[in-house]
Design a protein around this nucleic acid. Structure first.
Lengths: 347, 347
DNA sequence: CTGAAAGCGCTTACAG
DNA sequence: CTGAAAGCGCTTACAG
């Protein structure tokens, strides 16, 4: 029951084949497919049947070319192998899919060139909108951005100054003060900080939360109590080693993300330093890892699904009304108390 | 220095604007852009400059429509939140990107409808090829597949009978015999099996490895030693509970994937049953999790990057030569010995 | 080396 | 309710 070859020529049916087969015009077929009101019910039914018979699918390129709308949205993620953004991407994808959009993932790959190429590709392919998590906001990238007339929202990143692009992010500073206050309340005073690369905006916001809370409590954030450089388990392990080597009197550590926190826990476990009895550790992100039986990391949970959904919704609004630039959204992280933090024994 | 508005009309420059601006024909601009040999060097340079000036990017829809080639490839993954496929997808993406292709991720979502919709979308959007990991091979899906004339390769799945679609997968049966032989060599005789849902081809291949090696060693795979149903940590935990509850004399467990294995380890840890002293556990996949300090799961590593790369290469070949259907590839998994398996003490 | 023309597969005013 | 025609933004024989 397959059409396969039509008139011994074309491989796949197009709208012309359908029209010819039914003895109607191409316009009529088009209208019938798109539920145009001005089509006789009978005609519509015939068209539907012919479509089934020929296994016809309209060519989205032709459609997009003429309608100037592709129902395609680009979603740039910094690193496909980073576990953090997946549930976020999932939420973006679901929200957009419900509205008939296909989302195209772009692998930024923590690589400036790839990020730019993704933008280029998005322009050439006429995407309807873009959700971006760029790591490299150099001049060239910003110029590219500003030359675009596609709706854009930033996710987990702040847009460069001067561009009115809305963003969705967590208030990292505020969240960091929450976790720091928690440690302070538990009685900790000697608190270390394991940070991401200092080029990271997010990392710096969390650091700012750390230093501010320290100062507010009359404590000096000492250079020797802070260490920067990575975002992986391995670098967390290393950092913990250095930190504790220089400051064996630390009673708590604030790790700027869970991977770093888990690395810290590994180092402490390897050196038989009991957590939380001797050292408390708090992370940030609430990755799946954090809940493992052996880890049970106390951490700040980012509302990942909500962030993804919200970013998608903002974008949808912008697409619906091109004049409108919605407000950015700063969401709150939530303290998830597990088993790596404990009140310091008052001496 | 931005063009922005051209002739107070169009927003974005197109090839016509460039041509008009230079006083040459559209064909000449097209040829200059595409490095056609028959273009004067000087003309080419002028075109290049105009392109820069207008910030012009060719419309990929128009290009695709006429060239019948979109440089777009669809990659279906079963579940965006599953940690297993990411490095695999990464390798696919890298390989394809090098050759100028954009890959579009499709979220199968372990949902039959979404898988079909992705195929439909791929047809409409004229993708050049497809890498598929479908979970639902019902009749409708198979018919859809066979009506396609796009090159397809299956990744981590076997194509339905009758369709000559090449695939790339690990030899799960062979790998399972490797891990089982390892347990047998360690002296284990009472070996349990924690399996995936019985609808899973992969799960059944691993099960077959288990039962065959048991039988070859004169052991009977007892129904009470096997348990099926999930692929998550939680279901591994549950399964281990049931298994051990009924068979406290088990000395080893073969978990059909790492998540199940980790769940099993959790249950054992929660019940103070020492691993590997009392019970050995072996997994399958070698997820990142498996290497965590507290887990150190002995497991079978799948060559994920190679699988992804290979699938992409096969597809590229098929795209280059549409007549050619390459051989499928069955790769070998590798035993990664960590700390969850130990020789059984001979009584 | 360059241009005019046809055409890719659709949609959409415009007429009737 | 339906059809003929123009057009979306390109590429590519065909002529010159």
């Amino acid at each position: 029951m397959q059409a396969g070859f039509i008139d011994g020529g074309t491989i796949l049916a197009n709208i012309k084949d359908i029209a010819k087969h039914l003895g109607v015009s191409v316009s009529t077929v088009s209208r019938a497919m798109n539920n145009h009101p001005d089509v006789r019910q009978e005609t519509k039914l015939q068209v539907m049947e012919a479509i089934r018979y020929f296994n016809y699918r309209p060519n989205a390129l032709a459609k997009g070319l003429i309608q100037k709308k592709t129902f395609t949205i680009g979603l740039m993620v910094p690193d496909l192998s980073d576990p953090f953004p997946t549930s976020l991407s999932n939420a973006v994808e679901e929200t957009l899919f419900e509205q008939g959009y296909q989302v195209v993932f772009g692998n930024g790959n923590r690589n400036s060139e790839k990020e730019k190429q993704f933008l280029q590709s998005a322009i050439e392919r006429q995407f309807d909108g873009l959700i971006l998590t760029p790591d490299f906001l150099d001049d060239e990238f910003i110029e590219l951005l500003s030359s675009l007339e596609i709706p854009i929202v930033f996710l987990r990143r702040r847009p460069p100054e001067g561009l009115s692009i809305p963003y969705v992010d967590v208030d990292h500073y505020q969240a960091a003060t929450v976790s720091m206050n928690y440690l302070i309340e538990l009685g900790h005073r000697q608190i270390g900080f394991i940070g991401m690369p200092q080029s990271s905006f997010i990392g710096n916001e969390r650091l700012r939360g750390y230093t501010d809370v320290m100062r507010k409590n009359g404590l000096t954030p000492e250079a020797g109590h802070m260490i920067f450089g990575g975002r992986t388990i391995e670098s967390g392990r290393e950092a913990m080693g250095k930190l504790f080597g220089h400051n064996p009197d630390l009673t708590a550590v604030f790790a700027a993300n869970d991977l770093l926190g888990i690395g810290a826990l590994e180092w402490l476990a390897m050196h038989d330093i009991p957590v939380p009895e001797k050292v408390s550790v708090i992370g940030f992100d609430n990755l799946e890892y954090a809940g493992l039986y052996w880890i049970q990391l106390t951490t700040m949970e980012q509302p990942r699904r909500e962030m993804g959904r919200r970013a998608a919704q903002l974008l949808l609004q912008m697409i619906a009304d091109k004049e409108y630039t919605p407000e950015s959204e700063l969401m709150e992280a939530r303290l998830v108390i597990r088993r790596t933090c404990k009140a310091r024994l008052t001496p």
